[in-house]
Design a protein around this nucleic acid. Structure first.
Lengths: 348, 348
DNA sequence: ACGACCGGTTGAAGCGTTTCGACTTTTCGT
DNA sequence: ACGAAAAGTCGAAACGCTTCAACCGGTCGT
C-alpha cells in the first residue's frame, strides 16, 4: 500500500514531492513556509502529494540553510528534585507559547555533564539557553559569551553584569529559616547541605549566619554537616551522622527539602521525635513537603514563576539583542508547618 | 582579543579553520572525526587553529550530510511524577553509555502534545524513540512505523507484535494491591484513578477486579472514583469527593502514589485517621511514599530498570534492524507500610 | 632498481533545504 | 487596447559539512 513512498534513495525529499505534484521545489517550499503566496489549486496539489508520499521536512537541512534552529535548551541541576521540574514547567510554557521548541536536560549537579551538554547545545546552534549552573567557576559558560549565544542564568544571580539572571534571594531565605528556629527558642543548630561548590548551598548558609549574627549569637551556634549530594539518600546519611553526635542539635536547617525528607526518615527510623527532639526546616517547599510524615516547615520559592520569567528575559533578548541585561531577584517566603512546632517546654 | 574570530560571515566554519591551518577542509574534517588518520604535526596545527578561532562544528550540516542524527528521544507521560524521572534516569544512562545523546520530553498526558513532539522527532530524524504513549489509539505512532523509525514502548505492552515494549504487569499489580486489602479484612473498597484513556489506569483496575473475583466478591465491592489527572491535586480532589460519600469505603486503592499522597492530605485535613478509618494503597512506590505522613503501602515498579531495558532494546534494534521484536514484562511487588496496617478490630 | 604498497593529503561532489532574482501570466487602470 | 503592476512560479545558488576517488612521495620486498 505504500509503494509510492520511497524516493530515489530510501527517504522522501522535497524534490520527490515537487516531481509528484508537477511543480518546482521552490513552490513546495513556499507551500510549507508561506502558504499564502501560492495559488489555492497548486497548494492543494502539493499538499496532497506531501500527504501521499509521507514527506517530512528535514530539520537539519532547514537549519543549515536558515542558519539557526528553533530551539531553546534548558539545563537544570537535578531533575530528581521536583523544584526544578516546576521551574522547567514554567519555562516550557512560556517558550512554547512563543512558538519555539524546548529541550530540557539534566546536569545532575555534575560540571562535566554540564560541559558536555553545553557543547552539544553549541553544535546544535540553539537559539538560546536557560541554565542553572553546576559549575561555580562559570567557566563552562564562557564559550557562549564568546559566541554570542544568548543565555539566562536561572536560580543564580549573574556575577557579570553583562548577563541576565532570575533568582530567588537565598541569603534572605537562609536567614528566614534560621530566624524562625531562633524565635522558636532553639540555640543549638545544624546546617545540612553540600557540596559547597553549589552556590545555593553557600548562600543559604550565609543567610543562616546572618540571622545568627543579627541575634547576637556566635557562628558556632550553627554546626555544619556537609553532604555529597542534595537528595533524599544524602539526607538519610546526614541523619545517621547527626544521630552519632554526642550532643545533638535541637534544630536542623536543610539546604533543600529532599535532604530534609531524608533526615526525617532517619529520625523516624531511630525513634527520635520531630519536632519535639529535633526541629527541621527544609527549602523549596516542594509539593511533597506538606505531605511528609511530619509536615515540613520550608522556605518557599516561586519556582514556576522563576522559570517563566527567565524564559521571558531570554525571549526579550532574542528579539532585541541590544536589550538591557538584568538580574531579577525574587523573594522567598517561610511556610511554617508541624516540623518546627515549638516544643512546649522550651517555648518562650 | 578575539579579532581573528570572525570568518567571512559572522560564524567560523571548517573552511576558515582549513585556511588558518594551511590544510584542506577534508583534513580538518579528518582531524575531528578520524584523528588517527592524520599526521601528528598536522593534527596539532589544525587543533590549535580550531582552538584559536573558536570553531564549533555545525551539527545540522554534519547531520544533513551523514543522513542521521546521534539522538534518541524519550517521551514520558509526566515529568512531575518521580516514577518517570526514574525511568528517564535508567534510559539516559544506558543510551549515553552507548555514545548517543538523549532528549527527554514530557507529553503531560496530552495526546496533542504527544503528536507535536513526535512530529518534531521525525523532522529531526532522531535515531530512535522511547515512548510512554498518552494516546490509547496508538495512532500517533503510526507515522513512525511507516517511516521505519525504530521505537520502543515503555510502561505499556505492545499490542502489535511487530513492536518492542518493556512494561510492568499492571494487572498483576492491581490484583496485588486489592488482595492485600481483602486479606486485611476490608470488604468495602474504592479505586481512585483516571482518565480511563490511560492504559495503566485501566489495567490496574482490571487487576483489582480480578482479585475481587478470585475472592468470590461481587464487582460492586469496588467503587470507582474517576479523576481527571494523575497528580497530587487530583488526589486531594478525589479525597474531597470520598469524604462526601454517605457510606465511606474502608480502603482505597489509588492508581498512583501522587493520587494517594493527595488523598492522604485530604484525609488529614478532615481529621480522618489513616489507616484506622481508611486504608490507602498507592502505586509506583516513589521515594516520597515512604516519607509520607503515614508511610504508604504501594506497588513497587522497577522504574530505572525498565528505562534501561527499553533503551537496551532500542539500541539492539538500531544495530540490527532485523532483530526480533519482543515484549518484556516485568513483575511488580507489593511494599506494605503503615497506611494499610490492619485495624485491630477488623483483623481476622 | 622497479613495481607495489602505504600513510597523508587534496578537491570536488553532494546532502535537502531556503531564498531570491528572473520570468510568465493575469489583472487592472486609463 | 496598451503598458504597468501584481500574482505565481521557476531554477539555481548557497548553507557547512562528510566522503571518496585520486594523487603524491616514500619504503619495502624481491
Amino acid at each position: 500500500m505504500a509503494s509510492h513512498t520511497a524516493g530515489p534513495a530510501g527517504t522522501v525529499g522535497i524534490k520527490d514531492v515537487a516531481r509528484a505534484a508537477g511543480v518546482s521545489v521552490g513552490t513546495v517550499s513556499n507551500v510549507i513556509n508561506r502558504p499564502d503566496s501560492v495559488a489555492e489549486s497548486t497548494r492543494a496539489r502539493v499538499l496532497s502529494a506531501i500527504d501521499r508520499l509521507g514527506y517530512v521536512r528535514s530539520e537539519s537541512a532547514r537549519q543549515l540553510r536558515a542558519g539557526s534552529s528553533r530551539m531553546i535548551s534548558l539545563l537544570v541541576l537535578d531533575m530528581g528534585n521536583p523544584f526544578f521540574v516546576d521551574v522547567a514547567r514554567g519555562a516550557e510554557r512560556t517558550i512554547r507559547d512563543a512558538g519555539l521548541g524546548v529541550m530540557v536536560c539534566n546536569s545532575a549537579q555534575d560540571p562535566a555533564e554540564e560541559a558536555t551538554y553545553l557543547s552539544l547545545f553549541a553544535e546544535q546552534r540553539v537559539r538560546g539557553v536557560l541554565l542553572t549552573p553546576a559549575d561555580a567557576t562559570g567557566r563552562n559558560i564562557d564559550a557562549f559569551r564568546r559566541h554570542h549565544i544568548p543565555f539566562v542564568l536561572v536560580d543564580r544571580v549573574a556575577e557579570d553584569s553583562a548577563d541576565c539572571s532570575v533568582s530567588v534571594d537565598d541569603v534572605v531565605g537562609g536567614a528566614l529559616a534560621v530566624r524562625h528556629l531562633l524565635d522558636s527558642g532553639h540555640r543549638d543548630l545544624a546546617y545540612v547541605g553540600g557540596p559547597a561548590r553549589i552556590r545555593q548551598v553557600q548562600d543559604r548558609r550565609d543567610g543562616a549566619h546572618n540571622a545568627l549574627a543579627a541575634a547576637g549569637l556566635p557562628p558556632e551556634t550553627l554546626r555544619e554537616i556537609p553532604t555529597e549530594r542534595l537528595d533524599v539518600a544524602a539526607g538519610r546519611d546526614a541523619g545517621a551522622r547527626l544521630l552519632g553526635l554526642a550532643d545533638r542539635p535541637t534544630a536542623v536547617f536543610c539546604a533543600n527539602d529532599l535532604l530534609a525528607l531524608g533526615l526525617l526518615q532517619a529520625m523516624f527510623a531511630a525513634g527520635v521525635r520531630v519536632p519535639e527532639e529535633v526541629a527541621i526546616v527544609g527549602y523549596d517547599d516542594i509539593e511533597f513537603a506538606a505531605a511528609a510524615a511530619v509536615p515540613l516547615t520550608s522556605v518557599r520559592q516561586p519556582a514556576e514563576r522563576m522559570g517563566a520569567m527567565a524564559a521571558g528575559l531570554l525571549l526579550d533578548e532574542l528579539q532585541d539583542p541590544g536589550h538591557p541585561h538584568q538580574s531579577v531577584v525574587l523573594q522567598p517566603e517561610l511556610v511554617v508547618r508541624r516540623s518546627t512546632l515549638t516544643p512546649p517546654g522550651k517555648a518562650e
